[in-house]
Design a protein around this nucleic acid. Structure first.
Lengths: 127, 127
DNA sequence: TTCGGCAGTTACCTACAGGTGCGTACTTCA
DNA sequence: TGAAGTACGCACCTGTAGGTAACTGCCGAA
């Protein structure tokens, strides 16, 4: 079997391994989505909410706060009335993008295979 | 701001986008960990359980079934008594490894920055 | 003068992820 | 004779992720 190189680079069995914590951070339903649309140039609360259909105001605020707290997005409050707030990627947040590209490409390329495997597995179970 | 290339490749706002579903699959607490240790050459139920400290038998079985159902691992039951079962990566599962490498590398390289940002943010909040 | 948009906050509720503990059927070793 | 390892399945319980609804204060437009 081919063992990829990444197997030696992290020890996920160590509960202190940062990968555990980072996967908790970006592994939820909305974080990566928000990172993506902010990178696409959508910066304001209302616009984000409309663009990411299905997200509640609560989860939007909560997720943005978490991303801000971890230095991935920057919140700019213009202190005007009516309120005007903008969210932008920090350099750190922007650097995460390229790291995710291969994963999204894998999903695009291999999702068909996953669906096929799923169908084949379901068929085997039924038999 | 630099817009990475991946922003145009997927539309995560579309609920039908496979990325939503795949992130559900690998975004949980154990899937990536199990993929990793299986890639490292640990193949049997008991060995996996000992290696991934903290996982319960239930979640181990449940996660392995999910990975099997999606064609990422193969379950080989030797039909012996006492039971002997081995789990191996399928070619599809093995192909996921390289797609994750940049992400893990990003975590390794940038986790310090995240911690620093977190500390700085906590300090700002307290003030 | 009332309504909608701005960017939230708070309280409350539900569903599910995940943990604990027990049972199964068999074998080998002490 | 019984303890431990092998690979589970099932029932029950809890924590929390995430959703809903109602509220704030201010403005401009109809």
């Amino acid at each position: 079997m081919i063992v990829p190189d990444w197997v030696d680079k992290v020890d996920p069995c160590d509960a202190n391994c940062p990968s555990r914590e980072m996967l908790d951070l970006i592994g939820d339903r909305w974080s990566l989505l928000l990172l993506l649309v902010i990178a696409q140039g959508v910066h304001r609360n209302g616009a984000l909410k409309r663009r990411v259909g299905g997200i509640s105001q609560k989860m939007l605020t909560q997720t943005l706060r978490a991303l801000e707290a971890n230095g991935l997005v920057e919140r700019r409050d213009f202190m005007t009335v009516p309120p005007h707030v903008e969210y932008h990627l920090t350099p750190l947040g922007a650097s995460l993008g390229p790291a995710l590209t291969p994963l999204f490409e894998w999903i695009e390329m291999r999702f068909g295979d996953v669906l096929a495997a799923r169908a084949e597995f379901a068929g085997r179970e039924a038999a």
